[in-house]
Design a protein around this nucleic acid. Structure first.
Lengths: 192, 192, 192, 192
DNA sequence: GATGAATGAGATTTCATTCAT
DNA sequence: GATGAATGAAATCTCATTCAT
């Protein structure tokens, strides 16, 4: 194993261990020392790759966009609604897969940082949904009276609202059911 | 001023000062010492009334229900939609009035507590919206195919989703606009 | 009920509540506020009767001597051994009756006070055992080569050693069995 | 000096300083800050090695067993009584050497901990005395009517009773005299 | 006399971060 | 580059005690 491979492996080990611990004990209880002990790495090593736990979380969370992007490549959608549905559904599925504690961590980390990456407009999901809605407008399904951006944010609000609700209920609600219900109604609502 | 009045005043002083500081610096930056210094009370006095800052927040937040309840007493609503609208709108107005930092505080405090008072079903808003939806069902506006409870949670999700979005944007979005938009669509959606 | 009766009743209430709490949570965990809340008396009232918890304990513990004294009045002992046995046995019985937590409290309170009442020589048990041993010497059962005081302390050491052992085992050993065994051997030892 | 040696040295420095301060001011008056200041280490360093003062005490106290064990290796005892005498005497000598305040600390720390290491049966002294008594039984010096374990506990009670008495008298009694007297009588008593 | 609100010193504890080895 | 001992500021929390009402 080359040095570079070793470095990547250590980095990934930190991410994995951090997510594991977050799921176990909750974001605010996980310390850097915890992570290093469990990952069998030195504290110095941690600081070599990241400068704080939020950054680890950020690293992890960023992978969502790539996964969404990868998934899209293999598919074509005849109708814009199908693509919107695919994007929202896959996003929800990712959340369910990682567990509510991880979403809770992401949300609560946003409360301490100025740069809310969760909400950065350049994010892939944002960009793509905007395109999808434009397509809906182009084919006349969606009226022109509301701004595309507004509609996109509305859709995202519904998805995030469902996730937020799920997290606040400690994962005890059925995220897929409520999430799909909510965004479907929004998509329906867009078409009047 | 009797001793009892004095005690109540001290308690309220702590609540007010805490909310003030939260609005100024954000929940996680406010310390008990901060509150005591600004309120000109000793740390011991703080612990005489509360056991932590989250409890102060809880005390404050609980007043919302009373405010909603008071407001309702003075009004009668011919149509159930009007009452639903009143409840959701007033709730949003309260949030706007207190500032996004306070909502942020309430949300992030929920992440550390097991007993999520924000979501306790017996809360007045919950109870009342349930009744309102029942009324809508009774007069035939709302179909029977979805459970009242489900519909109520859907409505609340939309309101809370908007608040969450607002908080995540550091209060830079227009909560009244998005909130009213979202819950109105849900009320509309309930009636098919 | 006269004022005086009321005062006595409050005082006794404090003692009883304190002992109850000590048995429940252990001496070092009981606070004055605890006692007052449970006894439904004000903190001021506590300070009216006692100046600290150790004093309450002392009050309680002092009753031992009176109980021992009372018990003796009703009895005569033909043999000095019988009286020694009675004194030691009754003392152990009192300990068992109050529970190991109370003995633990008494012992650990002694660690913080200069004036070790537990060991004050004028205590009734001390005085009486000294007399008993003198009697043993007078009738020739006990030799003159060891000082009466030394013998008395030896006997007390054996009783207290058993109590200490019992406390250190969280009351799980059989105090009556070990205690009687030990002091009997000492009494036997005194007679060579 | 390697880093590892340095670490060990810091750890030992904490133990030594803690014991010094306990001897000076008594267990309950020594604070972590005190220890760190005197040891010229940071509070963080303390918590790097221990989680509280009781743990330091435990570390220190544990060394007793090794000392006893070391001492035994260099000796052979023809008679079991001599070994019993050696064990008890050396134990008492260790107590005297460290001062009554240290014993007081050990005892009073036991009142707050569930796991009473002072009394754990696997301790060296316990184990060894059991063997010694077995030897006494094997050569017919001690009868079979009492359990070895009971006899062992009796002997230990006498030693500990003397130590306890000494501590309760603030070290003003002559521990070596009373201790040797008491355990000798017990050893004598075992042989009838 | 009784009350209990208020005090505040001081102890414990946490943990991100540094930096000598 | 990697390590992890050491730092120490800063927060929480406790509780005996006081004293105005």
């Amino acid at each position: 194993m080359t040095r570079q491979e070793q470095a990547l492996r250590s980095r990934q080990k930190i991410i994995d261990t951090a997510m594991l611990l977050i799921e176990e004990k909750g974001y605010s209880s996980v310390t850097i020392k915890d992570i290093c002990e469990k990952a069998e790495l030195s504290i110095g090593a941690f600081y070599h790759y990241f400068s704080n736990i939020a950054e680890v979380l950020f690293s992890f969370y960023n992978q969502y966009d790539s996964i969404l992007e990868e998934g899209l490549k293999e598919r074509g959608f005849e109708r814009w609604q199908d693509e919107a549905d695919y994007l929202c559904r896959t996003y929800l599925e990712l959340m369910v897969k990682n567990g509510w504690q991880v979403s809770a961590a992401v949300i609560s980390s946003q409360f301490r940082i100025e740069d809310k990456y969760l909400y950065r407009e350049e994010r892939f999901l944002n960009r793509r949904l905007t395109e999808v809605i434009e397509r809906g407008k182009a084919c006349g399904d969606i009226g022109d009276d509301e701004e595309t951006e507004e509609l996109c944010w509305w859709l995202l609000r519904s998805v995030r609202g469902a996730i937020f609700d799920w997290v606040m209920h400690d994962g005890k609600t059925d995220l897929m059911a409520t999430g799909v219900h909510d965004y479907s109604m929004v998509i329906g609502g867009m078409m009047k």
